[in-house]
Nucleic acid binder design. Structure first.
Lengths: 204, 204
DNA sequence: CCTACCGATCGGTAGG
DNA sequence: CCTACCGATCGGTAGG
């Protein structure tokens, strides 16, 4: 039972769902490496072991692959970030754990989904942006709560919105220069970042 | 006197040089807005008031336009950053001025050159990267000197290379979210960033 | 998911 | 810098 263009809306079997997942991981990896525009359907189908028309059995358009990659990245990132926020830790320690978790969503094995979001937002069609922004806003809200807590503990000072953007920006930018297996470990990076941002607690 | 492909290596008149400059500014603006891959030669020629084959009178390939945009951005950014570094100021104040200058190279009117470098590095052919990296290294070296001075003044602590990358990353990332004319001014942003990074001077 | 294919677009060029 | 054009590539589709 196919719809316009021969692309199914619903999967037909568990096998299809697995194939779709594998295909999406291939998309994420290639989009990260070569960019959305720099990746062709033929790149994707070859890497997935298919022929060039076959990806369209799973996704209606290339754009749909991009959106699916970003949404999956955000959903997984949200889950991990929420888990850390729920921990009962002092603000300073929780902050370092939040940074570490975020670094893992960027550099963990097979975690190419969020980097695509960080790099290729410009390639998302305006009509598709709203849904992704809604997920992003939830991610940002978690970080805002973290920043607010740090401000209230006297560990940060300044406009709270700007602080969130600057802190998250410093971490996100690491996607451009950090390479796993290099000099610094992700733990070291998380610790350096945490100490860079936080000031000594105010003494009263 | 033309060379292979009809594209001149040397300009023939001052008028040609002016046209080339104007064309390059158009390239920078469009590359920033739509990305290198998302910008067509026809976009460029239309915006420059030419016909579609004409940009190739000034640049041999589209790739050459990209490289020229990045190099010009770096040369101008270097000049401005060097001027700030040469000022006789206390580290804390100089740091804020450095940040402010960098923000100006990103958000100043007509300053679309550095943002292209920040966004579209992936589109630079490996063969063209070396020259740009050489300029980038000089830029980074200036910032490293700034970071080193801050460390020696007790205003920063941690691995100096990582600190430089994190600080510059936070600023660079603002290209993704900051819009001139919004809530915060560039001065406010520079001040917030400076205060975020620096700790109170150690008391002895 | 494969086969065979198409229409559109794109970077680039020859010749003036 | 314009005119006229080309070869290659690309996203996507029909039909099975």
């Amino acid at each position: 039972m196919t719809r316009k263009g021969g692309t199914p809306r619903k999967r037909r079997s568990a096998g299809d769902a697995n194939r779709r997942d594998a295909l999406l991981r291939v998309c994420a990896r290639l989009f990260r490496e070569k960019g959305f525009d720099g990746t062709t359907i033929r790149d994707i189908s070859t890497a997935a072991g298919m022929h060039s028309g076959s990806p369209f059995y799973h996704f209606r358009t290339k754009q749909a692959m991009l959106v699916a990659v970003m949404e999956q990245g955000l959903v997984e990132g949200l889950r991990k970030t929420e888990a850390v926020m729920a921990l009962d830790l002092a603000p300073r320690e929780k902050f370092e754990r939040m940074i570490r978790a975020h670094l893992d969503t960027i550099f963990g094995r097979g975690n190419d989904f969020i980097p695509v979001l960080l790099y290729d937002w410009r390639s998302v069609t305006p009509a598709n942006r709203a849904r992704i922004i809604a997920l992003r806003d939830r991610y940002d809200a978690l970080w805002q709560r973290m920043v607010d807590a740090l401000c209230e503990a006297g560990l940060l000072r300044g406009d709270r919105g700007l602080l969130r953007l600057l802190v998250l920006g410093a971490i996100n930018w690491s996607a451009k220069w950090y390479r796993p297996g290099g000099r610094a470990s992700l733990d070291e990076l998380a610790r350096t970042a945490s100490e860079l941002f936080l000031r000594a607690p105010a003494r009263r």
